[in-house]
Design a protein around this nucleic acid. Sequence first.
DNA 1: TCGTGTGAATCACTTCACAGCT
DNA 2: AGCTGTGAAGTGATTCACACGA
Lengths: 211, 211
Amino acid sequence: MSNLNLPEAALSRLTVYQRALVELNDSGIKTVSSRELAEISGSNESKVRKDLSYLGSYGTRGVGYETERLIKEIGVVLGGSQPRPAVLVGIGNLGRALSQYEGFQVSGFPIVGLVDTDPNVVGETINGLKVKNLDQLEELVFQTSAVLGIVTTPAAAAQEVVDCLVEAGIRSILNFAPVVVDVVEEVEVRKVDLATELQILGYYDHLRKFD
Amino acid sequence: MSNLNLPEAALSRLTVYQRALVELNDSGIKTVSSRELAEISGSNESKVRKDLSYLGSYGTRGVGYETERLIKEIGVVLGGSQPRPAVLVGIGNLGRALSQYEGFQVSGFPIVGLVDTDPNVVGETINGLKVKNLDQLEELVFQTSAVLGIVTTPAAAAQEVVDCLVEAGIRSILNFAPVVVDVVEEVEVRKVDLATELQILGYYDHLRKFD
DNA sequence: TCGTGTGAATCACTTCACAGCT
DNA sequence: AGCTGTGAAGTGATTCACACGA
């Protein structure tokens, strides 16, 4: 089931379409064409049609797509909207920040546990969660049924932390540490690299000075 | 000058190589092969060689690349390490978080101004910076010589804020708001979409249940 | 012999263009 | 007439494979 070999590029756009569709639907718009959907999600009409065609044929020729239907179908592919609890490891300033960021909760990934190794931080309560020590991770994952790990440690600690997460049964990791971590094949790691994003912007800024 | 038509994909890897090279160099390693560099930066040897070949021929056959030389050459392409001051707009919980994140400062993008529209927030001091109102943005950009804008507003406010940033002369924008913004061609916007990253992880997690 | 540098082959994604349904 | 769904063509990135210099 659900085996439709969705290209990675399409997958990331589908999440954007879905947000746009929910907004349309909330404002009472019942149907939308590939052109309109492209417009609001910063895509283009062929891409939208191709992307949606991976899900099946849910559009109506001459008319467009029913927003509600499409929201449901994308939801099915993305794995329903069942919440996936997350533990966050690394209570530095980024970790502290993200632990209070409601965006995770809102998108269905509530943070249910906080972990660090610094004895000055372990025991502290942030946002109603008491920071646990790294050696309690397995227990924490078990108790909270967490399925997602968010890593906000310094680069040097990231590999060890990821190993602990995998050991504790976590198979999906979002890594904010500016380092590439090794994991076994079954584990999916996605990296959010703020420094790289900035440097790319810096590069284009630099380029502009020579046009 | 500096016109070497670097593919986007190579560009983002170069920033990763550079971090790895700095680390190698700091631990006294003078030369590195494409294989070794690939290993530590999560790439592969052909990609490394191809990426580095965009810069010129700085390797030595049979030996590898001099770390110090390579750091310098990548630095030249990425636009030197001159700091590029940034203003951050949107003092919600993510904005507050990022305004205290030292990573920006460390990578050469110090946050030199904070902006919001909420009168309850404007005037507040965070990390030594007083939050300004959106209508003071132009003045702030002028006074601080900011060249980069970081947008951490809710989705609904992002387009207006981006328009103000562009109006104020900012040409490079890092957008954390979960919405695609329109800008004129000369402006470079990069989007960091945490909700999408999570959903992609969710998708793979979901898939694993049917293998 | 070892590892770079690079054309050529392959693969993945995007865009085109149009047949076919409503 | 309008808009989807989709093969086919085009584009760009990755990987292969090997000639060449150290």
